[in-house]
């Protein structure tokens, strides 16, 4: 029962990849990371890592969450070292994004009213009834 729920979680994440490669769709929607051969794990992890550079920090988040166990808790195997590097780098990139976004959002929310015109043009939705 426990395993079952893990499986469904993973599936929803794996669905993200359907955009990139249709061949994967079949495999991954039915797959469990546990059952995947190690070399495919590595290639998957790399793809997520590289994909993150296209201003997609959520791919890095997925990568970190998904491969964290694989990278740090599984008994050692050949590809693990590289997976570890990718997960670490994804995590680093993710942190950078979080830091940058948090800073920007804080500044923007704080100064939007003060900026006046610029603040309004930068806004997508302008709150009603407040400066």
């Amino acid at each position: 029962m426990h395993i079952q729920s893990n499986f469904t979680d993973c599936r929803s994440l794996c669905n993200l990849t359907t955009f990139t490669n249709t061949k994967w769709t079949y495999q991954e929607t039915n797959m469990n990371l546990e059952r995947l051969p190690n070399d495919e794990k590595l290639s998957l992890c790399r793809k997520y890592y590289l994909g993150g550079f296209a201003f997609l920090p959520f791919l890095w988040l997925v990568n970190v969450v998904w491969f964290f166990k694989e990278a740090f808790f599984k008994p050692a195997y050949t590809e693990q070292l590289q997976i570890k590097t990718y997960v670490k780098r994804s995590g680093l990139g993710l942190l950078l994004w979080v830091a940058v976004l948090t800073t920007w959002i804080t500044i923007f929310q704080h100064f939007r009213a003060e900026w006046g015109e610029v603040g309004d043009y930068l806004s997508f939705t302008i709150p009603l009834g407040i400066p």
Partner: peptide, 14 residues
Amino acid sequence: TCMRRNEVGTFSLN
């Protein structure tokens, strides 16, 4: 401010 928001608002989702 409000006339500007009238104009900016037209690009918004709502």
